[in-house]
């Protein structure tokens, strides 16, 4: 899917998006004011963060939390909030600290 076109002739017929998942090219990470920091040492890989993340931003590898997709994470904090209280493997940190 081309993002920039020179002519209407370059568009797929009928306004369809002819490939899946093209939204990955759109970065919603800059919406964030709080950044989730994942601590893999504390993490018990219960995957609660993964099932509840509205932005599909919890990246798994072999059924374990590998990282957080900061290009798309909007910083809602659901992951940190849903992480079991005894585990607390995700902490929300002020995004300004990283700029």
């Amino acid at each position: 899917m081309k993002e920039n076109i020179n002519s209407w002739k370059d568009l797929p017929i009928g306004g369809i998006v002819d490939e899946p998942g093209t939204a990955m090219a759109y970065k919603t990470g800059d919406w964030r004011t709080l950044r989730p920091i994942h601590n893999s040492e504390k993490c018990i890989n219960c995957l609660a963060c993964w099932i509840y993340c509205p932005d599909s931003a919890i990246i798994l590898k072999d059924g374990k939390v590998e990282s957080i997709d900061l290009e798309h994470c909007k910083g809602c904090g659901i992951c940190a909030h849903e992480c079991p209280p005894k585990v607390k493997a995700i902490e929300m940190v002020d995004e300004a600290d990283f700029r």
Binding site: I5, W8, L11, G15, I16, V17, P20
Partner: peptide, 23 residues
């Protein structure tokens, strides 16, 4: 080959889609 049908256009694409329809 999953496609998305009926997506929303903002000012950046609607006119081109309608131009194609006119053609």
């Amino acid at each position: 080959k999953p496609i998305t049908v009926g997506s929303i256009d903002f000012v950046d694409y609607y006119f081109e889609h309608r131009r194609a329809l006119a053609q």
